[in-house]
Design a protein around this nucleic acid. Structure first.
Length: 400
RNA sequence: GCUGGAAUCGUCUAGUGGCAAUGACAAGAGACUGUAAAUCUCUCGCCUUCGGGCUUCGUAGGUUCGAGUCCUACUUCCAGCA
């Protein structure tokens, strides 16, 4: 069982620590989206420097390239990418929702590779196998998002997700029991080499067996009855934590999370899948009991020139920043804000220098990581409500 | 000086007598939430009550119902010959 200590609670919100084989995650925490085993435009060193505690890669992308065998050969995702910290993998289920030409049946999903059009199939079982081979600390169950917002489609997607969850749990436990993960016990080393348990006495790996952990995914869209049903279903399963999926906007998220997180067992961590582009997502998410977040928004916004400041996002490409020699965000202590001006960033973006995307990504990722860290600190010290009010009123100004 | 050729939106460029006129870049702005995204969308002669109106393709004339497209002259640039 994944170890999760709760240090402090305030309503549904909690401050805690998730203990993974690759280290601790002090929650609430923002997990960097490293879809293809890299956070776009950033090195792992830069991720460490800006304060990131964990990364999340995507099974679908890694299965296509470079393939799970190679990652296994490298010693797992952490070794391969040199991210020597906690790792998550998303199941690939989200691709059902985001790719065209997807055929879904009860067994699984048939995709066409977006790279070369090759036929590709993923099932709950193959997703579990791939995630074990990739070797992230925390895996997501293979889930299914609805094809529309209607209650019928949401219900169908939820029920399929539940059926698949049972198969994910069974396969996860089968792999866990049939194989052991060898390592040095410190979350380092070749712990990601799959080995049969049936080897001889002297062949046992030196360190204690490492494990990997599974989160169920709660679905149900914006319908509270479905969310409640899904939360109840997932809560009853032998899983280590929960992902909350299918959320696309902060509108109504408080009520939805209140429903879901009141049902989910308190002693297991909860990950709000894909949310965190807007600061309000993180405040509401943490306030209503989510422990970790991931989102491609911060780095994508960065590459497209949309940069966070305490007064809201700005488009650094706008002409008004041509002569603005002030730091992007004076209150920020990231490498970008400490060293460079808005005018310089503007110039880098206008001339399409790759440095523009690097510096912007450092800042945006730092901004979001740091904001969630502050959420943790203020929850811990009991001034979360004040922080939330002042942050959001300044960030969104008259818009809210 | 002679002989050819060329002059179209900030730049380069398409353009058969029925075009406010092609494409690219530049410029201006917007979008982006478990990444097919260093991507995508819109605007880009002036005015508009969004129906349309007005002025445009080096300059000035001309032919024609109609000219960026044909003719004449001029101006500038390019090439070759002097």
């Amino acid at each position: 069982m994944l170890k999760f200590d709760i240090e402090k609670k305030q309503g549904l919100a909690r401050v805690g620590v998730i203990h993974t084989p690759h280290g601790d995650i002090r929650t609430p925490a923002f997990v960097g989206a490293a879809t293809r085993a890299t956070v776009k435009a950033l090195t792992m060193e830069q991720m460490r420097m800006l304060g990131s505690q964990a990364i999340l890669a995507n099974t679908y992308h890694l299965v296509l390239r470079p393939g799970t065998e190679l990652i296994q050969e490298a010693g797992g995702l952490a070794e391969f990418s040199s991210w020597h910290g906690p790792t998550f993998t998303d199941s690939g289920g989200f691709q059902i929702f985001s790719l065209p030409d997807v055929k879904i049946n009860e067994n699984g999903v048939k995709f066409k590779s977006h790279i070369d059009g090759a036929n590709f199939e993923m099932t709950p079982e193959s997703s579990m196998q791939a995630q074990w081979a990739i070797g992230a600390d925390i895996h997501m169950a293979f889930d299914h998002l609805a094809k529309s917002e209607s209650h019928d489609d949401m219900k169908e997607a939820m029920e399929r997700t539940h059926a698949w969850l049972d198969r994910c749990v069974a396969e996860h436990l089968r792999i866990k029991n049939d194989f052991t993960w060898a390592g040095d016990g410190n979350g380092r080393g070749p712990q990601n080499v799959l080995r049969s348990k049936n080897f001889g006495e002297g062949e046992l790996p030196a360190g204690p067996a490492q494990s990997q952990y599974l989160y169920a995914v709660v679905q149900g869209g914006t319908f509270l009855d479905l969310r409640a049903e899904s939360a109840k279903y997932c809560a009853g399963k032998e899983v280590d934590g929960f992902g909350i999926g299918g959320v696309f906007t902060a509108d109504g998220m408080d009520e939805m999370l209140q429903t879901v997180n009141s049902i989910l067992p308190e002693n297991k961590p909860r990950h709000l899948l894909g949310m965190g582009q807007e600061p309000i997502d993180l405040f509401v998410g943490a306030e209503y009991g989510c422990d970790t977040f991931d989102c491609v928004g911060p780095t994508r916004m960065a590459r497209n020139g949309s940069l966070y400041t305490l007064d809201g996002r700005i488009n650094i490409k706008n002409a008004k920043y041509t002569h603005d020699f002030s730091p992007l965000m004076p209150e920020c202590d990231c490498e970008c804000c400490k060293n460079y001006s808005r005018a310089y960033l503007h110039h880098l973006f206008k001339t399409d220098e790759i440095t523009a995307k690097i510096l912007a990504s450092i800042h945006n990722e730092h901004f979001i990581v740091h904001t969630v860290s502050r959420i943790r600190e203020t929850l811990s010290s009991g001034v979360f409500d004040e922080y939330k009010t002042s942050f959001l009123s300044r960030y969104y100004g008259k818009k809210r």
